[in-house]
Amino acid sequence: MKADETLDCYGLMCPMPIFKTAGKMNEIAPGKILEIIATDEGIKKDIVSWCNSTGNELLEINEEEGEIHLFVRKSS
């Protein structure tokens, strides 16, 4: 999946990946896709809850070689 922006949360532990995601989403335009790269397994559960509470859309979660790649579309 192609993202408009990428946020590197590699090595950060909860709650920092969600905190940084929220900040980055405030900077991008509605409809844009943010890729979050993280290593904390908790992000997979946390991003679902965060998207449900903010109205943003979780598009995809991929794992490759210890990295978790999450794709979120900013709501309008």
Rank of each mutant, 00 (worst) to 15 (best):
Met1Phe: 13
Lys2Asn: 13
Ala3Tyr: 12
Asp4Tyr: 08
Asp4Thr: 07
Glu5His: 15
Thr6Leu: 03
Leu7Tyr: 00
Leu7Gly: 01
Asp8Ile: 06
Cys9Lys: 06
Tyr10Arg: 13
Tyr10Asn: 09
Gly11Lys: 12
Gly11Ser: 10
Gly11Met: 08
Met13Trp: 06
Met13His: 12
Met13Gln: 13
Cys14Ile: 07
Pro15Phe: 04
Pro15Ile: 03
Met16Pro: 02
Met16Gly: 01
Met16Val: 09
Pro17Asp: 11
Pro17Ile: 11
Ile18Ser: 05
Ile18Asn: 09
Phe19Gly: 01
Thr21Arg: 03
Thr21Phe: 00
Ala22Trp: 08
Gly23Val: 02
Met25Asn: 10
Met25Gln: 10
Asn26Gly: 14
Glu27Ile: 04
Ile28Asp: 04
Ile28Val: 13
Ile28Leu: 09
Ala29Glu: 14
Pro30Trp: 12
Pro30Asp: 10
Gly31Trp: 06
Gly31Thr: 10
Gly31Lys: 07
Lys32Met: 14
Lys32Glu: 15
Ile33His: 04
Leu34Cys: 03
Ile36Cys: 04
Ile37Leu: 05
Ala38Cys: 10
Ala38Val: 09
Thr39Gly: 00
Thr39Gln: 01
Asp40Lys: 03
Glu41Val: 06
Glu41Gln: 10
Gly42Arg: 15
Gly42Pro: 04
Ile43Phe: 09
Lys44Cys: 08
Lys44Ile: 13
Lys45Asp: 13
Lys45Phe: 13
Lys45His: 12
Lys45Met: 13
Asp46Ser: 13
Asp46Ile: 02
Ile47Asp: 12
Ser49Gly: 05
Trp50Pro: 09
Trp50Arg: 01
Cys51Gly: 05
Asn52Trp: 05
Ser53Trp: 11
Ser53Leu: 14
Thr54Ser: 14
Gly55Tyr: 02
Glu57Ala: 13
Glu57Cys: 08
Leu58Gln: 05
Leu58Gly: 04
Leu59Trp: 03
Ile61Leu: 06
Asn62Arg: 15
Glu63Gln: 12
Glu63Asn: 07
Glu64Asp: 14
Glu65Leu: 08
Glu65Tyr: 07
Glu65Cys: 04
Gly66Ser: 07
Gly66Leu: 05
Gly66Glu: 05
Glu67Leu: 15
Glu67Gly: 04
Ile68Asp: 01
Ile68Phe: 02
His69Leu: 14
His69Pro: 01
Leu70Val: 15
Leu70Gln: 03
Leu70Phe: 00
Phe71His: 10
Val72Cys: 00
Arg73Phe: 05
Arg73Pro: 01
Arg73Ala: 09
Arg73Lys: 15
Arg73Asp: 06
Arg73Val: 08
Arg73Cys: 02
Lys74Pro: 01
Ser76Leu: 15
